[in-house]
Design a protein around this nucleic acid. Structure first.
Lengths: 189, 189
DNA sequence: TGAGCAAACTAACAACTGTTAGTTTAATGT
DNA sequence: ACATTAAACTAACAGTTGTTAGTTTGCTCA
């Protein structure tokens, strides 16, 4: 486990502030103050405020893309793949609670990287939808609108970062299992 | 149908801009330009930028509170009440797509009204949770963690504003029914 | 016609924004 | 002991922010 660089520390603290107030409301002076230094000193380690946001969001978006690639190539059936997707979201969200907030709420403040991000996201959704459609075709899952199913599951998974920190005693594996039960099998007896 | 006041028009346009860029990133000059006037002129109709946000969020939060009160006093069983909750969210979200974005993403920029908003929200969640617990007790719904169930359903419902505008041909009643099926009964056969 | 008034305007403000240039500090390795 | 260097500092910039004060415009109705 190699030591965190000063730049990584800045990005980590920035992500926390971005989660609390949003990218636009966080000033470089806020960030510097949280680091215990002056705003100008930040620029010894990063190029711009924009760069910080880019790093937070793109790193995470690529991690989701990579995770989806692995799931696609797994031998599991559709329900099994959905379970893996849930586990992927629980894992990445719990490892990067603050970054997930930027990913969800501040992606529109990307500039050059914005189109790239949107491409990654829409590819991810296409892959997700394809898994559902495959499940419908094979009779594994109900013949409902796959768009609405994906919407329902994906918005829940994208909001995990809000809930995970509230449950300090949360067992991630148990949480993942409960989510799987609820999202796949529903809640009624 | 009485005509919209100039103030209501400003609040409506502001909500749209807040959805696109977030409260902090929208300037009074942006808003004025969208209204076709100068920034200073806005102040003939509103007291402050803060006031606009307050109006958008509190109006909606109170509408949800009111809706929940009605559902509580209905004679339906637990599953029936959940169905009504889904319909409430579909209705309020589709009527106020832009405001829902502020409610979800910009409530932290409230000032004096922030505690009031948080109170409304936590009361709403308490009422929601009580319905689920009642359903568990009566055996209507599965004996899973009610917190996780509520989280899953509520985050989906809170994100409706993202999806509704994408489906221009969306039939709200059909959408509501599909959501009900998926959230309550799950997606597997 | 002209008084009243809602709603626009211009001009300006003090504070705050991201960022730069140049300088000082303190620890490191030779 | 000294040169190097990472990382802090001070000072300043040009542009943007929400907002106020005072003025002008143009419609409504007596």
């Amino acid at each position: 486990m190699k030591k965190e660089t000063r730049q990584e520390e800045i990005v980590r603290i920035a992500a926390r502030l971005f989660k609390e107030k949003g990218y636009s409301a966080v000033t470089m002076r806020d960030l510097a103050s949280e680091m215990g230094i002056k705003a100008a000193s930040l620029y010894n380690h990063i190029n711009s405020k924009q760069d910080i946001l880019d790093m937070i969001i793109i790193t995470l978006a690529e991690a989701f893309t990579e995770g989806m690639k692995q799931i696609q190539s797994s031998p599991e059936d559709c329900i099994g793949k959905l379970k893996q997707i849930i586990e992927l979201h629980v894992k990445l969200s719990s490892q990067n609670i603050y970054g997930m907030a930027s990913l969800n709420n501040d992606w529109m403040h990307l500039k050059e990287k914005r189109d790239y991000y949107k491409k990654l996201r829409s590819n991810y959704e296409d892959d997700f939808r394809a898994i559902l459609e495959e499940g419908i075709a094979s009779g594994e899952i109900i013949n409902q609108n796959p768009e609405v199913m994906m919407f329902s599951i994906l918005t829940t998974l994208r909001s995990l970062y809000i809930w995970i920190p509230k449950k300090e005693d949360l067992n991630l594996m148990e949480f993942s299992t409960a989510l799987n039960q609820i999202l796949i099998k529903g809640i009624n007896k």
